[in-house]
Computed example of a mutant assay.
Amino acid sequence: MTPYSTTTSPTDTAARFLLLGDSHAGPIGRAAKAAGIPFSGGPVGAGREFNADFFALRGKDVVFRGTETDSLYRTFLDELGITGLDGLDVPLVCTFGFSAHFVATSANWDIYRVQGGGFAPGFLHSRLFDDLVRATVRGALAFYAHARALGLRVVSVMPPQRVPGMSDPVVFRAAQETMRRALIELGVEVVDLRDRVTDEAGHQRPEFSEATDGIHGSLAFGRLILADLLDRGL
Results as ranks from 00 to 15, higher is better:
Phe76Pro: 05
Leu19Ile: 08
Thr198Ala: 00
Ser167Gly: 11
Ser23Cys: 02
Gln115Gly: 14
Arg148Ile: 03
Asp231Arg: 06
Val103Lys: 14
Leu224Lys: 03
Val137Leu: 11
Leu85Gly: 11
Phe129Cys: 00
Thr75His: 11
Gly29Leu: 09
Gly59Trp: 08
Tyr144Gln: 08
Ala220Ile: 04
Ala35Thr: 06
Arg173Glu: 13
Val157Met: 10
Gly84Lys: 15
Asp89Lys: 12
Thr83Tyr: 10
Ser209Cys: 11
Gln115Thr: 15
Asp199Tyr: 02
Thr8Asp: 14
Ala220Met: 02
Ile37Pro: 04
Val163Thr: 10
Ala120Met: 14
Val154Glu: 03
Arg223Ile: 12
Ala174Arg: 07
Ala35Met: 05
Tyr112Glu: 04
Arg180Leu: 11
Pro164Val: 02
Phe76Ile: 11
Val163Lys: 09
Val44Leu: 08
Pro159His: 03
Val44Ser: 02
Ala182Ile: 03
Gly165Tyr: 09
Ser209Lys: 04
Pro121Cys: 12
Ser167Lys: 05
Ile28Tyr: 03
Tyr112Ile: 06
His125Arg: 15
Asp12His: 13
Gly117His: 13
Gly233Met: 07
Ile184Arg: 14
Ala145Asn: 01
Arg148Lys: 04
His216Arg: 08
Met1His: 08
Val191Gln: 03
Val63Ser: 03
Ile82Met: 04
Ala25Arg: 08
Gly45Glu: 01
Trp109Glu: 02
Ala31Lys: 00
Val103Ala: 13
Leu20Arg: 01
Leu150Arg: 03
Tyr73Phe: 15
Pro164His: 09
Gly233Val: 10
Phe39Pro: 02
Val63Thr: 12
Val114His: 15
Gly217Ala: 07
Glu200Arg: 14
Gly217Asp: 12
Tyr144Ile: 10
Leu150Cys: 00
Phe208Ser: 01
Val190Phe: 13
Asp78Gly: 07
Thr105Leu: 07
Ser99Cys: 11
Arg30Ser: 14
Asp86His: 14
Ala149Glu: 14
Arg205Glu: 12
Gly26Trp: 02
Ala220Asn: 07
Ala35Arg: 04
Arg181Ile: 14
Phe221Gly: 10
Pro3Thr: 12
Gly214Lys: 13
Glu185Gly: 02
Leu85Asp: 04
Asn108Ser: 15
Thr8Asn: 09
Leu20Ile: 13
Gly47Met: 00
Pro206Asp: 13
Arg65His: 09
Ser9Arg: 06
Asp61Lys: 11
Thr212Ala: 15
